[in-house]
Amino acid sequence: MHRRREYSRSVPETESGLGPMDSVFTKCEKCGQPVYEKDLRARFNVCPHCEFHYPLSAPERVRLLLDAGSFEERDRGLVAADLLGFEGYAEKVEAARKKTGLDDAVLSGAGEIGGRRVAFAAMDFRFIGGSMGSVVGERVARAIEMAYADGLPLVIVSASGGARMFEGVYSLMQMAKTSVALSRYMEGSWPYVSVLTDPTFGGVTASFATAADVVIAEPGARIGFAGARVIEGTTKERLPEGFQTAEFQREHGMADRIVHRLALKGDLERLLGFVA
C-alpha cells in the first residue's frame, strides 16, 4: 500500500557482459556525483560515491547471493488470475511481465549460499511495486514448504509496497497463507532469515517478512507497516528524519543487523555457519 517512484536506474537484464546501458553516464540521484551505469551494475546498484542502495531486481539478487550457477527456479509459470476482473489489472500484469521478464513479483527456488543448500525467494519491486498477490503468496508458501519438506534453511529477500489491492481479499489472505506455512516450518529447527530491502511495507512486513529468526536490513531501506505519507495524512504529524529506515528499525529493536549489500552474501554465509 506504500507507493513510491520507481528509480529510473535499473540494471539491464542480461546474464553477463555488457548491457545496453553500460556506456551511459548519469548522476546519482542521492549524492549528485557522476556514475557510470556499468560501475553501478558491477556494484549491484550501490552508488560508488555515497553507497546509496538502489533497488535491485530479483534476478540480480539471485546473482548477488547465491553461488554461481546454483539457482534452480521453482514454480515458474504460475501467473495471476484476475478473478475479480478488476479494471486495468490484467493489462498491468501483462506490462509488468514484459518489462521484467518475470511471471510475478517474486523469484523462488533452491540454491546454494557458500555451498549450503537453501530455499530462496527474492521479491522484485519493479513488478507492480513488489505487491503481494496470489502468485507471490503461493510461491513464497511453496518455497517455505519445500524448505520444510527438505529440511533446508530459508532465505527470503523482500521488497514490496504491500498487498496487491487489485486482487481484493485474495491478496489480504496471502498473509494468512504464508503465515500458516511459516508457522509449521518454524516448529522445526532450521533457520529462517529475512532480508528487508528498500522498500518493504504493508502486508509483506505484517506477515512473512518480519516473522523470522534473524532479520537483516539493507542500509537506508525504508521498512514499515503504513507508508509515511499515509501516516502524515492521518495524524497530521511531522515525521522525524530517518523515520522507518533500516537504522530506525534496528534502533527500535525490530531488526538484528544492517548489512551493506556487497557484504550480504558473506554475512549470510557466516550466519548459516552458526545455525544451518
Binding site: S179, L182, E187, F225, I231, L239, Q244, F248
Partner: peptide, 26 residues
C-alpha cells in the same frame, strides 16, 4: 484497520500483526 501512526511504527506494528497470524496458525 491497525493504527497508522508514528508510535505504532516505532513499536513495530507490522511485527505485532505477523506474530498474531503466526500464533493463530499454531
Amino acid at each position: 484497520g491497525a493504527f497508522a501512526g508514528r508510535q505504532a511504527e516505532e513499536r513495530g506494528q507490522a511485527w505485532a500483526i505477523s506474530e498474531d497470524l503466526m500464533a493463530l496458525a499454531r
